[in-house]
Amino acid sequence: MWDERFEESVRRFLPYLPADEELVADAPLRDFGLDSLATVDLLSVLEDAYEVRFQDEALSLATFETPETLWKTLSRIRAES
């Protein structure tokens, strides 16, 4: 699935996800508190942590819908770098 760094980064922006609750692949990130400002901050954290840049086509609501879609996008970007 994803690595620990990714999970820690995403969890920081999910105030409604209890610390003891598993972050599942299809969790709706918006339902757990990822709003538009947090999305921008999360994007910045991921870009810095993985030394990548999300291109315009990856900057959509669909990319940040679930941890799975975000991880797949990040993995694709890393593979292309």
Rank of each mutant, 00 (worst) to 15 (best):
F6K: 14
E80V: 03
A58N: 06
A58I: 07
T73Q: 06
F13M: 01
L61Y: 11
L59H: 01
P18D: 06
L34E: 04
R11N: 03
E80P: 00
T63G: 09
S60F: 07
V24G: 13
F54Y: 02
L17M: 10
P18A: 08
D48K: 13
F6T: 02
P67V: 03
D48A: 15
S75D: 14
P28C: 11
Y16M: 10
R76D: 15
K72E: 15
Q55C: 11
R12S: 13
S9Y: 08
P15R: 10
D41S: 15
E65N: 14
T69C: 05
Y50L: 04
A27V: 06
S60C: 14
V45L: 03
A62F: 03
R53W: 09
D48I: 10
L37C: 13
F54E: 00
E7V: 05
L29W: 13
L29D: 04
E22D: 08
A27E: 14
E22R: 09
S44I: 11
A25V: 02
A19I: 02
A38Q: 10
Y50N: 03
A58P: 01
E47W: 09
S9C: 11
E4N: 10
D26R: 13
S36E: 04
L34C: 11
E65A: 15
A25G: 12
D3Q: 08
T66E: 00
A58Q: 02
T63Q: 03
T69I: 03
E80A: 12
R30F: 15
A49F: 08
F64I: 05
F64V: 01
L59R: 02
L46E: 00
R12L: 11
A19F: 02
D41H: 15
L34R: 07
E7A: 04
E7T: 09
K72Q: 15
E57M: 11
S44F: 14
K72Y: 06
L17A: 08
L14R: 02
P28E: 15
A79F: 05
G33Y: 09
S44K: 09
A79T: 11
V10L: 13
L59Y: 00
S75K: 11
E51Y: 10
A25E: 13
V52W: 05
A25M: 07
E22A: 14
S60I: 06
P67R: 14
T66Y: 06
Y16W: 07
G33V: 08
L61Q: 04
T73F: 07
R76P: 13
S36D: 10
L42R: 13
K72F: 04
A27I: 03
P15I: 05
T63L: 10
R5M: 10
A25K: 15
R5E: 06
T66F: 04
E80I: 04
A38D: 13
T39D: 01
Y50C: 03
P67C: 01
F13A: 00
P67Y: 05
E7K: 10
R5W: 00
E4F: 00
R30M: 13
G33K: 07
E57C: 06
L23H: 06
D41K: 14
R53F: 03
